[in-house]
Nucleic acid binder design. Structure first.
Lengths: 152, 152
DNA sequence: CCGCTTTTGTAGCCAAGGCTACAATTGGGC
DNA sequence: GCCCAATTGTAGCCTTGGCTACAAAAGCGG
């Protein structure tokens, strides 16, 4: 059984060196980028199961705009990370960890879109930009968004 | 001389297929991620030249939290893309295109941080999250941020 | 001006996430 | 029940952006 990662909050910043926290910020952004793909897949698989009853690699690939081969490769990574399962020539399913991740991602996505709209971003642009932005929004920032939208 | 890319607005969305615009959103996010590194380097090089008088690969690497070898490799990519120049064992400089990019990135970064703070995100979290978010903020969204902050 | 440290550059490795081409399995139509 | 199309999976390639290890140039102290 593969070791699960938390996909939660990471270690606190720590104020050791004088100017090196810039490096920490960049490192954080790089890390976020590496989990972004997992998050997108988890949410999409959850959606497909909810609306179509199943999540097939071909549908996943089409929705994400990648080849089915790329999708399958990424699904393999999800399985390695303990977020999804699948049997040969059967569909893809989420583990409990994967479901949890999908729920959090979906909620975060909505909150980001709503905040963008609330500050005056047109709906269409908000939807597009949120797709990239959401992966870099920390829990702390998310909480602030909630308060701003009056959903404390 | 290498062909320059614009790093500006991309082609309009187009509303061809029914549900395939989800694919377009993901593709856009992927593209943004590929230019994010260039943007970070351009801004940092500009900063270093402004404050230190020169941009040395070692300093760039330390600020970004990567090895100097990685920094040099990325600087090579900047040069390929026509954003920077450098001579062997001399420092790194930005081309006019690189300078322009740096200016736009810096302005966008400030605007994103300010907006986050304006909606109640603590300063420290805003700085950290902005580092990742800024690369996914479209011109349209940026304009909305400006209006919201009363800088129409 | 010589040598040692720092900086810069090169080579080669790795994983991720794209892709195409090809193989295998499934499943629906007849 | 068989066969062919669609789906799924595999293999192999490419680029990016990390890394370490090693080599070469710069530059400073003595």
């Amino acid at each position: 059984m593969p070791k699960l990662k938390s996909y939660q909050l990471v270690a606190p910043p720590a104020d050791l060196p004088p100017e090196a926290d810039q490096a920490h910020r960049f490192e954080k952004a790089r890390t976020a980028q590496s989990t972004a793909l997992l998050e997108d897949y988890a949410e999409l698989i959850s959606d497909l199961i909810g609306t179509e009853g199943e999540a097939r690699p071909t549908d996943i690939a089409r929705r994400l705009g990648v080849s089915h081969a790329s999708a399958i490769k990424s699904i393999a990574r999800l399985k390695r990370e303990g977020l999804a399962t699948s049997k040969l020539y059967r569909g893809v399913f989420l583990t409990p960890a994967g479901e949890m991740l999908a729920r959090r991602v979906r909620a975060r996505h909505r909150l980001v879109v709503d905040l963008l709209v609330a500050v005056g971003v047109p709906q269409a642009a908000a939807e597009v930009d949120a797709e990239g932005i959401e992966h870099h929004v920390s829990e702390e920032t998310l909480a602030a968004f909630g308060r701003f939208l009056g959903r404390a």
